[in-house]
Write a protein that binds this DNA or RNA. Structure first.
Lengths: 237, 237
DNA sequence: TATCATATTATGTCTATACTTATTTTGACC
DNA sequence: GGTCAAAATAAGTATAGACATAATATGATA
């Protein structure tokens, strides 16, 4: 968090991107300004146009530039930069923190999805699904309580898996690659069940993460994850 | 094969990426497998190696492939795919929902940062900063309560701005481009002040967003945003 | 003056080639 | 068998050239 290399200058394209970024941040090129075209920049920087193109693409992806054919490249007026959020497998997170990971399935049954689960998956609440509730522990202390619905129709071979003994998240990550995912953050006061599972008081504010994934065959799984009190999830860019 | 175009496959590189993604998702190439090298794929797909390289880079960025020089390209064992989180300007969010936006500064003073603010900015809590508290409304109802510290040393010309009348977030977005940002999500029970500002009860679970930005000159601003009860922030990929 | 077809232009994309770099293979040598 | 240096290899990156495409600028026409 503390080391902040101002110029990650490995590679000519990245060096050019860094220099252009500096000019924008230092307001040499102001918001809304048209910047020189790729051909000119290529001459200025002594690089091929393809290299300049790559550099400017990077900055456009960051949201710092807006590019349109023929119209040229402009510094974005409202530079909404995007942060990348990666949700690692909890086991790895816990183990990389030097703690021992464990995991306990609290309940498992076959049932039609709850109205909310069906809404998140964007389907009618009819077909039977696997309903799983589990707690993840680090060094014996509860870290996350998950309430998950799994659509057996979405992945072949799911019928033979006993999710009472297999970590559902990890199995799904490895065996049911999704094509689209949806993640939302919210907050909720712990209800009786949340409080019991996470060993905290009813009413404590919990960070709630809803995650739903889909593939060709439809929704794969939707899960509500309640994080232990005080937990933070961060993205850095 | 060729008549099946379900994905927006404009561009040869994107088409190749889509096809490789399909092979992975359909498990023709399994996790951990080494896939053919760029030169072979270039022949298979009838493309230049640079084009295949671009396609595979996309998938590596998505987290679906792991690439190492000389060692080749493998399907990721734990395909942790990344979601992109973009935090738009609240005014735009509210106005695009067809609501009227307004904004009220509750307090503004010059003071050394709180210990927590200093910690988030990674500095010693000494120099004077601007401390601002404001509420953002949509159709007169409170949407977010923000508690912000601004470092006047980080941006030239900040001294002349009266943040009582200017939207600090928008001014900063336009005038203090950052080079690094840090965003974390957490949850908190509304304290007396949160509850008053957001017109809710003490103890309600609130989604809290901490956001800190830096440039060359050091930290620009750090803000704690308390969202109205029930608010969700989502990312989709 | 307004409208529409045409030319122009900046970015988008692909290609072929070349060279660089990290890593693994190999093989000589002890 | 073990060690280490050299060869081989696959990705990383850059380049010049080419054509495609979308948007703008221009000029002819009504």
């Amino acid at each position: 968090m503390t080391d902040r290399t101002p110029a990650p200058t490995t590679g000519k394209a990245l060096a050019i991107a860094a220099e252009v970024r500096r000019r924008i941040v230092d307001r040499e090129w102001q918001q809304g300004d048209r910047i020189p075209d790729e051909a000119d920049l290529a001459i200025d920087f002594g690089a091929a146009r393809a290299t300049v193109n790559k550099a400017l693409q990077i900055l456009a992806d960051e949201g710092l530039l807006e590019r349109r054919r023929r119209a040229g490249t402009r510094v974005a007026v409202d530079p909404v930069r995007k942060a990348t959020l990666s949700i690692p497998i909890l086991r790895e997170q816990i183990e990389s923190a030097g703690m021992g990971y464990s995991h306990r399935v609290v309940a498992m049954q076959h049932a039609p999805p709850s109205p909310e689960a069906a809404r998140r998956m964007g389907i009618a609440p009819d077909g039977p699904m696997i309903h799983l509730r589990a707690v993840h522990y680090g060094d014996g202390k509860p870290f996350q309580y998950e309430d998950r619905w799994i659509n057996p129709a979405a992945v072949a071979g799911m019928g033979t898996v006993d999710f009472r003994h297999v970590n559902a998240n990890e199995w799904l990550v490895r065996n049911a690659l999704y094509q689209r995912a949806d993640v939302t953050f919210s907050a909720a006061n712990a209800d009786v069940r949340d409080a019991r599972m996470l060993q905290t008081r009813v009413g404590r504010a919990l960070l709630i993460l809803h995650r739903t994934t889909w593939n060709d065959a439809g929704p794969i799984t939707t899960v509500r994850i309640a994080c232990r009190p005080g937990h933070e999830i961060g993205t850095s860019d």
